[in-house]
Design a protein around this nucleic acid. Sequence first.
DNA 1: CAACGATACGGAACAACGTTCCGTTTAGCT
DNA 2: AGCTAAACGGAACGTTGTTCCGTATCGTTG
Lengths: 195, 195
Amino acid sequence: MNERDGDAGDTASRRKDARRNKETLLEAAAAVFVTSGVDAPVRDIASRAGVGLGTLYRHFPTRADLIIAVYRHQVEACAEAGPALLESAPTPHDALRQWIDLFVDFLVTKHGLAAVLRSDQSGFEGLHAYFLDRLVPVCTQLLDAARAAGEIREDIPALTLMRGVGNLCIGAEADPDYDARRLAGVLVDGLCRTR
Amino acid sequence: MNERDGDAGDTASRRKDARRNKETLLEAAAAVFVTSGVDAPVRDIASRAGVGLGTLYRHFPTRADLIIAVYRHQVEACAEAGPALLESAPTPHDALRQWIDLFVDFLVTKHGLAAVLRSDQSGFEGLHAYFLDRLVPVCTQLLDAARAAGEIREDIPALTLMRGVGNLCIGAEADPDYDARRLAGVLVDGLCRTR
DNA sequence: CAACGATACGGAACAACGTTCCGTTTAGCT
DNA sequence: AGCTAAACGGAACGTTGTTCCGTATCGTTG
């Protein structure tokens, strides 16, 4: 819970083998995630890193911590894109739409990440919480701006929208006929106050 | 695959203990599903029915077959509601909206059913196929009618819409702050050609 | 109605998973 | 060099879904 900020701090360990192993594990995990998805067995990652299971679990007490560590940079980038888009886009609603596109692309790119984001599976509360803590405020900002401009309906909270978009992305990478990006676009369109 | 029609036929077995056990299993499964969700361990269902694992697996070779059998009636009702709504609703788009509401209610009521509908998990292809075979044609009919009336955009296939709505329902039963029904409504709104 | 063969039964056993635990090794300070 | 705290590996545990087979039982047939 206190690992929320910067990588420089928590990678610090007295022993350099520990630091090296953590790094190796991150690389191995990233590699395995792209080939087998985030559901890949923990053992695969450990063996790919040439490391024991105990080592993996000491560095990343739960599978969620590993996923968070692997994708932290990209989540950060997505979060930072929010305010930027708000300035560059013609309208707040356009900014929102573009940001959602970013978010969708991120989720769809990682095999099964979206599926794992629904925290009802035990052990993933951490992942869920991290995503929400970092991205919901950004989404709220975009939504508020669009609301203030009178562009969208007022009764959809950021958290609901994000969970909805996240859910829409589930299984998107497996099936080319299911276009999660377009569907998310439709959802954002539906936010507009018409009628 | 040939279990698709009527229950009267396939429940027929020479031995009445077999028939009785199948019935008991269905009741036990339904009961366990409402308390523990469709993810409930198979052993729970078998023991609740006072029956061995082998018995359960002989009657329902895969967990999906069990789920299908338990919910067949309700799926059927949902499917039949489609054409009816098309006649009773003022516009095709209204019919579509109401039908989606029905579909969402069905999914949200069953704990975790929506989550399990994404067939990427092995063993659930059957469930996925059953739902799709039965409901996609209905949804297609509603969509076509709305398209013919010029009410909605044309580039969202029924399958995509249904998978999207199904995904939106994932985890809805667990968290009162996540309103899948409203979100599905927004999605259907987004289908309307505006701008 | 008795015997027999097909059918169904129960649950032990297997495989795959995440996670825990602990005896062993080793890095880095004194 | 020696010592201790830290990190290591991987066997072992608990929980899944699923398979398998020796045993019990039903329904028919002589």
